[in-house]
Design a protein around this nucleic acid. Structure first.
Lengths: 339, 339
DNA sequence: CTGAAAGCGCTAACAA
DNA sequence: TTGTTAGCGCTTTCAG
């Protein structure tokens, strides 16, 4: 691989001049630059980003830690982040934790070793980036979508409580009384808030809650649904709190021959593309994912660019989504709603 | 940020010893190592991966270039790759091209500058990694899922032609005669092969083909479907050649009040989770994505590890998927199939 | 088993 | 405008 020195030798100039000609725009004779650029091309020279980063003390790389890239929720987020950072000249180092707390710790450290300029972090732990405590240098971290107990970092989160309450209230408004929720693991902040919102809405209506906890997988959605419908007093409505769960719920309802919304109403958190394409399309609570991700980029680049920003205390921004009523929710069959 | 030298000073040892104690396992006294490890922890020392890579001439980083991470097809692939490379100690640098050829070129070069040890590349151009031609050093590249004209790299691809033919033949077997295909842009190898497979099956049955080309987006799927159903001689079956297209197709059919499979049968390429959860579940052609991705990792690490492998000529491996018949395909209503 | 010295490829003072 | 020098943080001979 050709180095800057090779270009220097081949042109009879000094390395410094090559460097200036190729990156530092100023102080180079036009003719010289032309000669350099030409030689560089001929030699197939590619600057070594590592060496450059080592000198410059910045890698132009941002670490992204997400729980699961197959989940549209995070895929959409990653996609937006990648595009926005790309525009600003940053690369993205992707880490996938599968919702495992131990992975969080390990990736956070790996990213620190790689000297990423910043980290966008969707935490899978209640405790957060404390595994980084070793690193004295404060590397900007923004927590996205989920957040941790300690308020040491910027956080951009959704109002999960409100969303869950909105979905639940919608069902209650349709006169459902036995509404079950299928939730994720309680170690995650989103899960806790969604459960809280659901419980509050139920309590306010004098109804008793029923929550099925488990991992954020189709399997859990499937099993929970079958469990819920296996017993007496089965729910007339189900609230699925995440995309992967919904996949399982739908499969289970199909396998059981349960009609939506005829036998059971279904509402869900988030709004991946395919929800609207369902038959019937799913009532859901949609979050402004794109805006949230873009704000994360904004926040990070601001902290990176302005030294003064580095010391500003961390802020938490909370975004609201909105309820989208579609065909999957209707009054329970034996209790017509008075519309 | 603490450096190796800081640890050296703090222990009264030399940098060389610290380095050996922390990475090079051999030739260090146990007591010394303990002292070093302790000091390192106390100082919050994190080795600088950049400096290490610069010296070692390997970054332990693999570049991944995919067209669209929101597409389950690539999300699943990325997820498997990330896990497998992680296990082998490699990080993943993620690039998303949005199916734009120019992005391919630019990312390929960025990755070269970053001195990634290898690249897993899902190409969005017909020409391929020729934008890398500048780099004399041969960096291992494996083309995944799609491939390019030049056979200069290892390639792991699916038998798209066979898959498309299988889906089409399935519909023909059900006695459909007007079968339309909704396809992607012809610049992509997958598109060309899928179209070819479809055309061949149609021709073999003496039927005339109808292909709607466009970008791999729900929008294109939506518009194409509406177009197809707007005219006389509308198709009795639709073949959607990718997940994002299917989202649009389903939405259009719903908006038009067209029943599946009553009015129109629908079959699709690939098999994201939610296909099976559809109502009716979608007949599709599923590819062994996981196996393909794992093989890519295998191939890359082999080339990386064994110097002899570096010179082995590139191979192309083609994987077959299998047809999964589900509820979305049935005989056309006015022409009952003789089963 | 440990230390000294050199250098990976680049950039940024400082001189010329 | 161009060249010289030093050094980012690490590993790796080569001596001791």
């Amino acid at each position: 691989m050709a180095t800057l020195r090779d270009v220097a030798v081949s042109t009879g100039l000094s390395p410094a001049t090559i460097s200036r000609a190729l990156s530092g725009a100023r102080y180079v004779d036009d003719a010289t630059r032309a000669r350099v650029v030409d030689a560089a091309r001929r030699l197939g020279y590619r600057p070594n980003a590592l060496a450059r980063a080592l000198r410059a003390k910045q890698t132009m790389t941002v670490g992204l830690i997400v729980p699961d890239i197959r989940n549209d929720f995070y895929a959409e987020t990653a996609s937006v982040l990648q595009g926005a950072f790309e525009e600003r000249g940053y690369r993205l180092l992707l880490c996938i934790t599968n919702n495992e707390a131990e992975s969080d710790r390990s990736y956070l450290n790996t990213l620190a070793e790689f000297r990423v300029d910043a980290i966008v972090y969707v935490p899978s732990t209640p405790t957060g980036a404390r595994g980084l405590l070793s690193a004295p240098k404060r590397i900007p971290i923004v927590e996205l979508l989920r957040h941790t107990e300690e308020g040491r970092y910027d956080a951009i989160v959704s109002d999960d409580r409100e969303g869950a309450a909105a979905l639940t209230s919608h069902l209650i408004g349709l006169k459902h009384r036995r509404i079950a929720m299928i939730a994720g693991p309680e170690s995650l902040s989103t899960t806790r808030y969604r459960i809280a919102g659901y419980r509050e809405a139920m309590r306010a209506a004098g109804l008793s809650a029923r929550v099925e906890r488990g991992p954020y997988t189709p399997d859990h959605g499937y099993r929970a649904t079958r469990d819920l419908l296996a017993h007496e007093n089965k729910p007339t409505a189900i609230f699925s709190s995440a995309g992967p769960l919904t996949v399982g719920v739908l499969r289970a309802l199909k396998d059981l021959g349960v009609a939506i919304p005829g036998d059971v109403s279904l509402v869900a958190f988030e709004d991946p593309d395919w929800y609207a394409a369902q038959n019937p399309p799913l009532t859901c609570y949609a979050l402004p994912l794109r805006e949230m991700a873009l704000l994360a980029v904004e926040l990070v680049t601001k902290r990176l660019a302005e030294p003064a920003e580095a010391e500003r205390p961390p802020t938490t921004l909370r975004f609201s989504g909105h309820l989208i009523v579609r065909g999957s929710s209707a009054p329970p069959s034996n209790t017509p709603a008075d519309l």
